[in-house]
């Protein structure tokens, strides 16, 4: 019988979120139809245990690199800052990657900055396996982040209503003319 173990008496904030881990689980799920011939990618959990990069989300489109730099360097010197851009317009679309020199700085950031405000928005921080070219672009249909496609609430910091919602409104608008 394994002895009872407990790391801490309260939950830790410096762990990867369930979202980061779920991506990993999805990836690892074996595909029965096609035997996986690719070499198994290194364990994500292991990668995250030395990660120095963070994904930062829920930024306003108008937040500048300087603002981000100013806040995040409170947890250690930044090695790199990559703004998330709209795939088509190449303008900021509300997320970024922040890279520190050390893993412990990145953890400090999760503990002390994640969930606080930047530019008056609660920002979200998550451990990331590391930036690679291409990841700075939004993956939504219209170029931004996926979440901004379907958002039904109005968010002035992130381009108003979701793109999808706006399109639906515009659709058929011509019939309203001359009423």
């Amino acid at each position: 019988m394994a002895p009872f173990q407990m790391r801490n008496t309260v939950e830790r904030l410096d762990r990867p979120s369930s979202y980061a881990m779920s991506k990993y689980k999805k990836r690892r799920r074996p595909n029965n139809d096609q035997p996986n011939t690719r070499a198994p990618s290194p364990d994500l959990e292991e990668k995250l245990s030395t990660a120095t990069t963070l994904y930062i989300g829920n930024l306003s489109f108008y937040t500048t690199e300087e603002q981000i730099h100013h806040l995040f360097s409170k947890c250690g010197e930044l090695k790199r800052l990559v703004m998330g851009l709209d795939r088509f317009t190449k303008t900021p679309c509300g997320f970024c990657f922040v890279e520190y020199y050390t893993h412990s700085d990145a953890l400090d950031c999760l503990k002390y900055v994640g969930g606080t405000k930047l530019d008056e928005r609660i920002i979200r921080c998550d451990l990331d396996e590391g930036f690679s070219e291409g990841r700075q672009y939004g993956r939504g249909k219209s170029g931004g982040q996926v979440r901004d496609e379907y958002r039904e609430e109005f968010d002035p910091g992130r381009g108003g209503f979701g793109k999808n919602v706006r399109e639906q409104e515009a659709y058929g608008a011509e019939y309203a003319q001359g009423q």
Binding site: K74, C75, G76, D108, K111, Y112, V113, T116
Partner: peptide
């Protein structure tokens, strides 16, 4: 003991 920003966020 910790980074100052910890105490900031604790006050917040």
């Amino acid at each position: 003991e910790h980074r100052l920003v910890y105490y900031h966020s604790l006050i917040t």
